[in-house]
Amino acid sequence: MTRTHEALAAETELWQVKYLNNGVEQDHRNIKRITKPMMGFKSFNSARITLSGIEAMNLIRKGQVKGVEQGSIVSQAKFIEAIFGIAA
């Protein structure tokens, strides 16, 4: 075991949680609903880029981005305008 692995093992706590994946599955439910009608991607790269954009918008909508308030459409629009230089 390398020094990095030993330090990580010493700092890592093992959680015995039976339903740990439920939160992840519920979080992706909205993304699954959006992507289901568009499952005919032409290439892996186009699917990767599209799914990354959908995930990013979901994070912004949920308020998981610093400086963006959850539920504040004005805050979300200002963030998107700052990032992409377009009015949302």
Score class of each variant (00 low, 15 high):
residue 2 T to E: 12
residue 77 A to H: 04
residue 70 Q to K: 12
residue 59 L to K: 08
residue 56 A to V: 07
residue 33 R to D: 11
residue 12 T to C: 05
residue 54 I to P: 03
residue 52 S to M: 06
residue 6 E to I: 05
residue 64 Q to M: 06
residue 17 V to L: 09
residue 62 K to V: 07
residue 68 V to D: 04
residue 19 Y to F: 10
residue 79 F to I: 09
residue 72 S to E: 02
residue 83 I to G: 08
residue 18 K to W: 04
residue 11 E to C: 09
residue 21 N to W: 06
residue 34 I to W: 00
residue 13 E to L: 02
residue 76 Q to R: 03
residue 48 R to P: 01
residue 50 T to L: 03
residue 33 R to K: 11
residue 14 L to E: 09
residue 24 V to E: 12
residue 66 K to W: 03
residue 38 M to D: 09
residue 12 T to M: 06
residue 84 F to C: 15
residue 84 F to H: 14
residue 17 V to Y: 02
residue 49 I to Y: 10
residue 55 E to V: 14
residue 68 V to T: 00
residue 52 S to L: 03
residue 79 F to W: 13
residue 86 I to S: 12
residue 33 R to I: 09
residue 72 S to Y: 02
residue 86 I to F: 14
residue 24 V to I: 15
residue 16 Q to P: 00
residue 24 V to F: 12
residue 38 M to H: 13
residue 86 I to N: 09
residue 27 D to F: 13
residue 54 I to W: 00
residue 60 I to F: 02
residue 11 E to N: 12
residue 26 Q to K: 08
residue 70 Q to T: 06
residue 51 L to D: 01
residue 44 F to T: 11
residue 45 N to P: 01
residue 75 S to T: 05
residue 56 A to E: 08
residue 23 G to N: 08
residue 17 V to R: 08
residue 64 Q to F: 01
residue 77 A to L: 00
residue 67 G to H: 04
residue 49 I to P: 06
residue 26 Q to T: 10
residue 15 W to S: 02
residue 66 K to R: 05
residue 15 W to H: 01
residue 64 Q to R: 07
residue 32 K to E: 05
residue 80 I to T: 14
residue 88 A to H: 13
residue 11 E to L: 10
residue 58 N to Q: 09
residue 87 A to Y: 13
residue 66 K to Q: 11
residue 48 R to E: 13
residue 41 F to M: 07
residue 74 V to S: 10
residue 39 M to G: 15
residue 31 I to T: 05
residue 61 R to Q: 07
residue 30 N to K: 09
residue 78 K to C: 06
residue 49 I to A: 13
residue 70 Q to N: 07
residue 14 L to D: 06
residue 60 I to M: 04
residue 34 I to E: 05
residue 87 A to V: 15
residue 10 A to L: 09
residue 84 F to K: 15
residue 7 A to T: 14
residue 58 N to G: 03
residue 14 L to I: 14
residue 21 N to H: 06
